[in-house]
Nucleic acid binder design. Structure first.
Lengths: 196, 196
DNA sequence: TGGTACATGTAACATGTTACATGATTAG
DNA sequence: CTAATCATGTAACATGTTACATGTACCA
């Protein structure tokens, strides 16, 4: 096999212990505080809970679970039906998460390809930029509406909402509203369907 | 040497031609429309022109320049003083850039580690989240002020400002203002220095 | 009994980051 | 002539993405 003879891979995995967690791995640990979950569960939970401001893929999740298990931060349970394998936090995992959380966040990275398009927009055919902007605008309007809807649902729910989760949601609302405002403030030269 | 016997690296490089450009590579092509530049020039130019919404590192730039040269999108000039090596757009490079630009932008990715910290904030020691938030707030306030300053300078400059560049700058202003608004709207439970 | 949704994982590759090595030019 | 800055690049690694392979359980 190709995999079994790449010994250095296992070496690097076993060294994970002394490297600081990455935010993706840490998030998985954070989610596992609610109880054992399988990779599948984690992917879908993460998607809904942090998916709006943090992307992760299935592959990544399984990889992080494997390395964190090797590092002793997680314990893999017995495979159940459909090969479901629950992962449980260990004390080391809990400690690693607490340490990560307390270190404070890194700076955010915004990567907004639309701004590259705008910056180089003069080189597009007349009207093409306007089309692109209109498409993007529709997308952000939909997202903004989506957030408002979630916000309303959370407010209408019984009992006081979790202020931490609400703060995160509120960021999404502010962000999308800012993007919409920006669209609205664009000069007609850029948004005119016939081009500048 | 280690490098010379990894033949497959050159293979993958030569296949770059038929894969679509990535936004980082495309941006370099975009910048090179103003004339030949060296890797160093590109790094510093990119830093100021797109650095606020697109990160790139020196290593990345040199790598992209090498692969794009192999793919025929660029032509490497003679090394000048201090080994400065200017890269020039080829017609193929111009065409590749135009095609990339016309395809329209991908969706943006926002990765905001602070939101992870907030989401898991309940697990921090009392007051710690408030401290972190205050630090971040200061940082964003500074950035917002910075943008306003650039905006003012651009407006005061002689001649009409480039509407494309202004639109990009304006996004930065909207974004930072949204972040500041979000901070201001956070509930006291999260921002109280003694913790919730 | 056959299709769809569930579930796990590897392989291969693309992109991003950090650290290191080397040398040229310029200012003092 | 020496320290700071300019300039290029490789090495090593970390992270992110896409495609592929495999099999299970449920439901019509």
């Amino acid at each position: 096999m190709f995999y079994t003879d790449t010994f250095h891979i296992d070496m690097s995995r076993s060294q994970v212990t002394d490297r600081p967690l990455n935010p993706t791995a840490a998030s998985l640990l954070g989610l596992l505080h609610h109880g054992p979950m399988t990779g599948w569960d984690l992917v879908s939970t993460a998607q809904t809970v942090i998916g709006d401001f943090w992307t992760l893929t299935r592959s990544q999740v399984y990889r992080e679970l494997a390395t964190m298990t090797d590092a002793g931060l997680l314990e893999a349970g017995e495979r159940g039906t459909r090969d479901r394998r629950p992962y449980t936090l260990t004390d080391a995992g809990r400690a690693a998460f607490a340490a990560w959380l307390d270190r404070g966040p890194d700076a955010e990275t915004i990567r907004f390809p639309l701004l590259l398009t705008v910056l180089f927009g003069r080189q597009l055919a007349p009207g093409r930029l306007a089309t692109i902007l209109a498409e993007r605008h529709a997308l952000h309007a939909a997202r903004a509406a989506h957030y408002e809807q979630i916000d309303k649902a959370a407010r209408d729910a019984a009992g006081p909402p979790d202020p931490y989760a609400m703060a995160v949601l509120d960021f999404g609302r502010h962000y999308e509203r800012a993007v919409l405002d920006w669209f609205a403030a664009l000069p007609p030269e850029l948004t005119a369907p016939t081009g500048p």
